[in-house]
């Protein structure tokens, strides 16, 4: 039986990706929007933050972290209420499919969209904005677990938050502002250390701040660490913060997710 759950989960993943690629808006939003932002910010802000660190490099690190939040949290928290409205969940509920397979399909979709988005940002960053890929295997390893933990946190939180929007139509209006505010507060559009103290402290409650900081530790030279608020990359604190969110997010997703109204 569990074998079947896994197999159907993978098949749902393939189906989700197929549906995703056929929705032009979602492809454009996921693929082009972050790259577009990269070009706008990278072209407008040409300052150098420290020797060997330009604002565009700083910004790309933040955008890659945001990509994890966009493809997971934002996408799912908007998509699931729409599927609830359209009867997708109700139809699935009437079949033998396990909810676990449904979530696996979503996770596969998120992970694929995320790889494409992060890949596009890395490519354009290296080609046009002098982004340096991680130089050591230690940094690549850190990049790997940041992406993995970040996307899983983002997925479970997206599923948990999907119960908040009352309808599919209103979901985007509820979810998008939260993501944008978190991006401002977490040092994606501005240098985090220049933000007001209360903003920094507020952002520290949420995973995006830790993800952006982690990505900076991967893509910026270690000499830049002293310019961080804590004068350090705080790698172990990043790991702990993400693990806590992973546990909290999973618990919330399990508790709040509902099939169609009973």
């Amino acid at each position: 039986m569990s074998n079947g759950v896994l197999k159907i989960g993978i098949q749902r993943g393939a189906l989700e990706i197929k549906q995703f690629t056929r929705q032009r808006e979602s492809v454009v939003f996921t693929m082009l929007f972050p790259v577009m932002l990269l070009f706008i910010f990278g072209s407008v802000f040409k300052d150098t933050l420290a020797p060997g660190v330009t604002f565009s490099q700083y910004f790309i690190s933040g955008m890659i972290a945001s990509g994890l939040v966009n493809t997971g949290f934002q996408q799912l928290a908007i998509m699931i209420p729409i599927e609830r409205d359209f009867g997708t969940l109700k139809r699935l509920r009437g079949t033998p499919i396990s909810p676990v397979s449904y979530f696996m399909g979503k996770a596969i979709l998120v992970f694929t969209a995320m790889l494409v988005q992060v890949g596009a940002l890395l490519l354009f960053g290296v080609l046009f904005f002098n982004l340096h890929l991680p130089s050591t295997s230690e940094k690549w390893f850190r990049f790997f677990w940041l992406v993995l933990l970040g996307s899983i946190c983002s997925t479970v939180l997206g599923i948990a938050f999907s119960c908040v929007p009352k309808s599919g139509r209103g979901a985007s209006a509820v979810v998008s502002p939260i993501v944008i505010v978190l991006q401002f507060f977490s040092g994606v559009f501005f240098v985090f250390s220049t933000l007001p103290k209360w903003m920094q402290e507020f952002a520290a409650f949420f995973p995006l701040k830790w993800l952006t900081q982690g990505m900076r530790s991967v893509f910026l030279p270690d000499s830049f660490a002293v310019k961080e608020v804590a004068a350090s990359w705080e790698v172990s604190r990043i790991l702990i913060a993400l693990l806590i969110w992973l546990v909290v997010g999973t618990a919330l997703a399990l508790k709040t997710f509902r099939w169609p109204d009973r």
Binding site: K18, E83, F86, T88, K90, G94
Partner: peptide, 13 residues
Amino acid sequence: GIVLQSTKDSEDL
């Protein structure tokens, strides 16, 4: 087997 009242799922398949 269940045939529900109108649904709008699977539009892109």
